[in-house]
Structures are given as structure tokens and as C-alpha cells.
């Protein structure tokens, strides 16, 4: 759901660029204060993995494909601020090097997939963990990942509507509908990766969240 140039009007992309810019600067400060020895390589490989996995579009419904996003994965493992930095790195490289997502829409894409993707996922997952304990680790991860995609896509629809590109009553059901299918893929991949990490390095699942 990388928004290209041309879909958002100036007031929308400019406001979202400012919001994302401020959030990013704050995240750099936050991560800079709490980052430890173990976080450094994990932040590196998480970004690399999310970039690579985002290249793999899988077919979801008649004539449509979707791909992994990674906001839930990065933030459940590393915390919301580190998750936002990981997502932003991926989105900035995709935009500047691969023309995936417009330059004017970069702030909006960081907002939808980075800020919403990381913060919503992290806090919802923390809440589920508090209520149910870590017994339902995998189910919790699946639900959070699925919802993160549907929510990011819904924010995207709202931005398109605010920009008068398409009415909300048309964009919202279409975007949320198709992304509720793509979200199943998101849930499976996030569960597989976190399951894999918890198998070979269970201590990393409990790494301090930033």
C-alpha cells in the first residue's frame, strides 16, 4: 500500500510529512537513549528481512496481490520506537532507490506503515499479553499483525478521501476489504519469524523494548 506521488493533495502530504518527520526525530532520540549491545545487529537484520520480504508479492484475490509489511514484527520484537526506525529505513530506501512509494507521499507512507504499523501493534500486543499472559503468544501475534494491515490500509483510505481523490465510502470498504485478505499473509509471516526466533534464541523475544 505504498502511496505514489499524485494520490494525495498538498495539505495532506505536507501535514503527514511534518508529523512523520517529528515522530522520526523523536524516535531517533528515544532509541539513542535506550539502545543496547544486543539491539544493534537485530535492528540491522530486521530491516534487511522486512525489505526482502516486502519484495515478495503473493496473489490474494482475483487479479490482486499483496505483500508483507513488517510493522508488527519489528515493533513486537524491538519496541515501537525501534520498530518505527526500522520501518522508516525500509520505506526511505524503497522510495529513493526503487521508486516504490512517492517522494511527496513518503511522510504518509511512514505514517501509515511505520507509525500506525509499529505503535498500534506494539501497544495492542502488550495489552493482549497483559490480559492473557504469553500462553497465546502465536494467536496474539497473528491477530495483531492482521489488524495492523487492515488499520494501515484504512488510514490510507482516509488520506485518499481527505485529498478528494476518492470518496471515503468507496475507498474505505475497498481498502479494508482487500487488506483483510493480505493481512492473513502478514499474520502467517510474522508468526513464522517470531516463532523461529523464539525457537533458536528464546532470550531475544524478551529483549528490552524501545
Amino acid at each position: 500500500m505504498h502511496i505514489p506521488d499524485g494520490f494525495l493533495d498538498t495539505k495532506t502530504w505536507l501535514s503527514l510529512s511534518i508529523v512523520s518527520g517529528v515522530a522520526l526525530a523523536y524516535a531517533v532520540k528515544k532509541v539513542g537513549k535506550k539502545i543496547g549491545e544486543k539491539h544493534v545487529p537485530l535492528i540491522g537484520v530486521m530491516s534487511a528481512f522486512i525489505f526482502a520480504a516486502q519484495m515478495l508479492n503473493f496473489p490474494v484475490a482475483a487479479g490482486t496481490s499483496g505483500h508483507f509489511m513488517g510493522g508488527a514484527l519489528a515493533s513486537i520484537l524491538l519496541g515501537p520506537f525501534a520498530g518505527l526506525l526500522v520501518m522508516s529505513t525500509v520505506l526511505i530506501v524503497q522510495c529513493l532507490i526503487f521508486q516504490d512509494g512517492g517522494l511527496t507521499a513518503l511522510g504518509a507512507n511512514i505514517f501509515n506503515m511505520g507509525i500506525i504499523g509499529s505503535f498500534f501493534s506494539y501497544y495492542l500486543y502488550s495489552m493482549i499479553k497483559k490480559l492473557a499472559g504469553s500462553k497465546i503468544f502465536i494467536i496474539g501475534v497473528f491477530i495483531v499483525s492482521w489488524l495492523s494491515i487492515v488499520l494501515s490500509a484504512s488510514f490510507c483510505a482516509v488520506e485518499l478521501a481527505i485529498s478528494a481523490t476518492v470518496p471515503l465510502k468507496v475507498a474505505l470498504p475497498a481498502m479494508a476489504g482487500i487488506h483483510s485478505l493480505i493481512g492473513i499473509g502478514e499474520g502467517i509471516i510474522t508468526c513464522l519469524v517470531l516463532g523461529f526466533i523464539s525457537k533458536i534464541r528464546p532470550d531475544l523475544i524478551d529483549i528490552e523494548k524501545i
Binding site: 500500500m1 505504498h2 506521488d5 499524485g6 494520490f7 512517492g102 517522494l103 468507496v170
Partner: peptide, 27 residues
Amino acid sequence: ASQLPDGLEKVAEDKGFIEKAEGKEVF
């Protein structure tokens, strides 16, 4: 990887606003 349009592209095609992005790349 699937070459099919992704979720947003597909919605843009179906709802008729895909052309708003055509030739709009700023770089």
C-alpha cells in the same frame, strides 16, 4: 513474486483514480 497489482493499485484501478499518479513522479 506475483506481478499482479497490489491492494492499493487494484483499488485505484477499480475505482478509477489510478491515472492521478501517472507521470506524477517528482524524481
